[in-house]
Design a binder for these strands. Structure first.
Length: 746
DNA sequence: ATCTGGAATCTTTTT
DNA sequence: GATTCCAGAT
């Protein structure tokens, strides 16, 4: 479309180099060989951008004699990183990029040498392992995830004596995270705070950051923020990394936030050997701080940048592309771009309108079976995408009932399970005794008779002495606030940890043995097994799986330390464990679908207020993001695309009838074939809430399943979160959230 | 200190 | 609907 002209590519590539360009279209080839200044590759969905990136890296190594050690490539997931490393390895030789393999041929990441290919977070964590002392953090720092961050925020709220009802841990953690994504420190935040709530947050933010530092812990955002801080603060460090990373390449540029942008700018500002790849139409992480402007404004920040657009699609049929093109064309804030292919029109898009979510799930499951039976498409090449995780349950149940094998990606994640977090918290305390959040987590888990009063007394002591929580435990007998029995219990706890640490420090134990030792010595496993409930046995099973994960990790990285294991766990994502399995249908959220592709894609729940999500309906910017999400989802499909909606749907404990998604109306009718399933039958129209417009009003008589009949006296609260004051005939006045209360008008 | 059951709370999406 | 929270009992 618009080939790079500023490139100063060598007149004739070597024979070797020519092979790298074979099979590439002119734009792709131009992107591969480009040299001289920053390069922005606008890569439409399915335009072969991974191929371009890998070939470009190979080109740099082979034709430009770039040192693989001097290449920093940033990907969106660890899985993508490994794939990229492997693909580059296949082009230039695995030894060059730092891949080694074990006896079974599995890729084994080498700790030293080779290219840096990883996510932003993993790269920063790796960098900080070396440089943390400069910032006054221990090298064995802990990484706090969202849950830990909320816990810590909760502790800070408590210590500041704020009302946890008005200033919630999660709310604060979210606000702090948003600030950090934007590189706003607590001083700046405090200055900008112009209302009561923000001033409270500012106070918590300050204390929160102090606590993190004392615990030698970085939260997720800190990995980025502190790396930026490090590079801004120390010229010699910046110079060293600039020199080291002679080439910087970033994938999924449209989903970078301010902190990531700044990091890239710092590293590449001088040498300007920067390649970014992205597609503004696929920006779907605004809520996480991604700034679309990073891609829209790239030319402003790097005026000498070359822009190459890849619009030729190698994945989907023209029908699917036309569908996606038509939908995304409704967005105002975008650079126009039209995907095309010469693969032909292919099958029409199938529309199915279900009675309810059960009918919808049955349609999907039956269609998947039918495609498999007719040998058209194996189930493993089909995927179902939904907007929210809550929608997966009915799909799962239906698949089980109809005997369709499936795998689910996302949802409640393994590492978020309580028992896993408990055990990891023990491991974290062993590695980093200053980690107060983890220490408090395990203080009384399993129960050992240490309650809230004891914890408070220990906290006070720690605050007075300025030491860690664990240090306060260690000096329990000096603590006058503690009853003798509590002193005994706390001392036992300290002994337990010391015993574990001695065993670990001896260096004889494999990671797996350490995991087992923890659950044995703490009595955690014994307690679960004694409980004999299905749930407890499941938890026990999960712990064993964690031991298995530890063993796998050791086999990939034989000399791995406990700290490295923990870091790995902190940075893996759900996507990383996804393995397209040839035989099973895949279920996942649309967000998780990013970067993947399937022969057949079902997008379910295409109703206004499910998708687009109701929280986006009033906000034009949010709605555009939903539309981009729709575009991402549609362009995952290679051959067939199904779009389904349901007349009525029970979600979050309430049934509602939502109109078909506005995105459906944006699909040209001539591309669509409506399908009515054999089992289709007119179902009873559900009586229920119809979104805010059709909502209840003051004076309405209502019926509540628990409180019975009543009358609405007033409606107040924040928009979108209205609260109704209802006087129930038998139960008196209650305040209920309008959006969630299962009330109907009568 | 811990257990319990009923009530309140909340749900986008996640590196 | 499912988890989390909290008061009151043990």
């Amino acid at each position: 479309m618009c080939p790079a002209t500023t490139s100063t590519a060598p007149a004739a590539p070597s024979e070797d180099g020519a092979a790298l360009l074979a099979g590439l279209n002119p734009e792709q080839a131009a992107a591969v060989v480009h040299s001289g200044g920053p390069l922005l590759i606008v890569a439409g969905a399915g335009s072969g951008k991974t191929r371009v990136l890998t070939h470009r890296i190979a080109w740099l190594i082979r034709e430009r004699a770039a040192d693989p050690m001097g290449i920093l490539a940033i990907t969106f997931t660890n899985k993508a990183a490994n794939e990229m490393k492997e693909r580059v390895g296949a082009l230039v030789g695995e030894r060059l990029v730092g891949i080694t393999r074990d006896a079974e041929g599995r890729m084994r990441p080498r700790r030293w040498g080779g290219m840096w290919v990883s996510t932003f977070h993993a790269a920063c964590a790796r960098l900080l392992r070396d440089e943390a002392p400069r910032l006054g953090y221990d090298r064995s720092f802990t990484i706090y995830d969202a849950d830990d961050a909320a816990r810590l925020a909760g502790l800070c709220i408590k210590d500041l004596g704020l009302d946890p009802k008005r200033v919630t841990p999660r709310g604060v953690a979210h606000a702090i995270s948003a600030a950090k994504n934007d590189l706003v420190d607590f001083d700046t935040y405090a200055l900008r705070a112009d209302n009561w709530y923000e001033r409270q947050i500012a106070d918590v933010y300050r204390l929160y950051q102090e606590r993190l530092h004392r615990a030698s812990a970085f939260d997720f955002d800190d990995l980025l923020v502190k790396t930026v801080e490090l590079l801004q603060l120390y010229d010699d460090v910046l110079a060293a990394y600039r020199e080291r990373f002679a080439h910087v390449l970033v994938d999924e540029w449209q989903d970078t936030n301010r902190a990531q942008y700044e990091l890239v700018r710092l590293l590449a500002r001088e040498h300007r050997r920067l390649t970014v790849v992205g597609d503004g139409d696929q920006s779907i992480y605004r809520f996480r701080g991604a700034d679309v402007r990073n891609i829209l404004d790239f030319d402003k920040d790097f005026p000498d940048a070359t822009r190459i657009t890849l619009a030729r699609n190698y994945r989907s049929t023209q029908t699917i592309l036309d569908t996606a093109n038509a939908v995304i064309a409704h967005n105002v804030g975008r650079i126009p771009k039209r995907l095309w292919t010469d693969e032909g029109a292919g099958a029409p898009v199938v529309r199915y309108t279900a009675d309810n979510e059960h009918d919808e799930a049955a349609f999907v499951a039956e269609e998947v079976s039918r495609l498999a039976e007719r040998d058209e498409v194996p189930s493993g090449d089909c995927a179902v995408f939904y907007r929210t995780n809550a929608q997966s349950r009915v799909l799962e149940e239906t698949c089980i009932r109809l005997g369709v094998a499936y795998q689910i990606v996302g949802g409640t994640r393994f590492y978020e399970r309580r028992e896993i977090r408990d055990l990891l918290a023990y491991l974290r305390v062993l590695v980093n005794p200053a980690d107060d959040v983890s220490a408090k987590r395990v203080l009384n888990v399993p129960r050992r008779g240490i309650g809230a009063r004891t914890e408070e007394a220990l906290d006070l002591f720690a605050g007075r002495e300025g030491g860690s929580f664990l240090a306060a435990c260690r000096r329990a007998e000096e603590n006058h606030l503690l009853a003798p029995r509590a002193v005994g219990a706390v001392t036992d706890f300290v002994r337990l940890l010391d015993g574990l640490r001695t065993a670990v420090d001896a260096g004889e134990l494999a990671l797996r043995d350490i995991v087992e030792l923890v659950w044995r010595r703490t009595g955690y496993m014994a307690e679960l097994e004694a409980e004999r409930t299905v749930e407890a046995l499941g938890r026990a099973e999960n712990l064993r799986e964690l031991a298995g994960v530890a063993e796998d990790f050791t086999s990939l990285q034989p000399d791995a330390t406990l700290g490295e294991f923990l870091e790995r766990i902190a940075l893996v994502t759900e996507q990383d464990s996804f393995d397209a399995d040839g035989s099973r249908l895949t279920l996942m959220t649309m967000h998780n679908a990013k970067g993947l592709e399937f022969e057949v894609v079902f997008i379910v729940g295409m109703e206004d207020s499910v998708f687009p999500h109701h929280r986006s309906l009033g906000e034009p910017e949010e709605l555009e993001e939903e539309r981009r999400l729709c575009y991402v989802a549609m362009t995952r499909a290679r051959r067939r695309l199904y779009l389904t909606n349901a007349w009525s749907r029970t979600l979050f404990g309430g049934t509602s009838a939502n109109p078909p998604s506005r995105f459906l109306k944006e699909v040209p009718a001539e591309l669509v074939e409506a399908r009515s399933a054999d089992h289709a039958r007119p179902g009873p129209r559900a009586v229920g809430r119809q979104g805010a417009d059709d909502g209840l009003g003051v004076g309405d008589r209502v019926l509540h399943p628990t409180f019975g009949p009543g009358r609405i006296l007033e409606i107040g609260g924040r928009p979108g979160n209205e609260e109704a004051l209802v006087r129930f005939d038998e139960y008196g006045a209650k305040r209920l959230l309008l959006a969630y209360a299962p009330m109907i008008r009568r």
